[in-house]
């Protein structure tokens, strides 16, 4: 199925959950989903026979600046050989997104990394802790306005 058909299918199934889309003039067409409907959309995309998206390749956080964070999901279907990109946008002050770790088990670690680097909180995640940074680190390093601390546990951090 090509991107336009997938978008039409999603729009008819989840009318208010699908917000906007950019399908033409881009290398990877994407569809924007509301942060509190992403779990239903994900389950539909994995289980429905027309879509069968069995592989979540990448779940990444992005700091879109202007106080918005985004979570981007790259989905592939090995059986049907098509792909789609989903995005959810959340404000920095309330960065809650539903977790899809129960749908694709690969989302477990990738959501933990998005939490560690950007501070996005995935509701329903079984074990949301820091994964790359030490447990007692302050702040979320990949945000654009991140300030590097001067000392950490007695060690000087900047050069």
């Amino acid at each position: 199925m090509i991107a336009q058909e997938l978008y039409d299918l999603l729009k008819t199934t989840f009318s208010d959950g699908i917000l906007e889309a950019k399908l033409d003039g881009v290398i990877d067409p994407w569809v924007s989903v509301a942060p509190d409907r992403i779990l239903d959309v994900a389950r539909f995309l994995r289980d429905d026979e027309r879509t069968q998206f069995d592989l979540l390749t990448l779940l990444s956080g992005v700091d879109m600046t202007k106080g918005t964070l985004a979570a981007v999901y790259h989905l592939y279907s090995m059986k049907r050989n098509h792909k789609i990109v989903l995005k959810t946008f959340v404000p920095e002050t309330h960065p809650h997104v539903q977790s899809v770790a129960s749908i694709w088990r690969t989302a477990d670690w990738q959501e933990r990394e998005a939490f560690d680097m950007y501070g996005m909180i995935f509701d329903g995640h079984p074990d949301l802790r820091r994964i790359l940074m030490p447990d007692d680190w302050d702040g979320h390093p990949l945000r654009k306005d991140y300030q590097v601390p001067e000392f950490y546990n007695g060690m000087k951090v900047p050069y």
Binding site: L132, M133, P141, Y146, V148, M155, K156, P158, Y159
Partner: peptide, 11 residues
């Protein structure tokens, strides 16, 4: 590198 120790001779 916010997580890199700039030289092991710091410890």
């Amino acid at each position: 590198g916010y997580h890199v120790l700039k030289g092991v001779d710091r410890v």
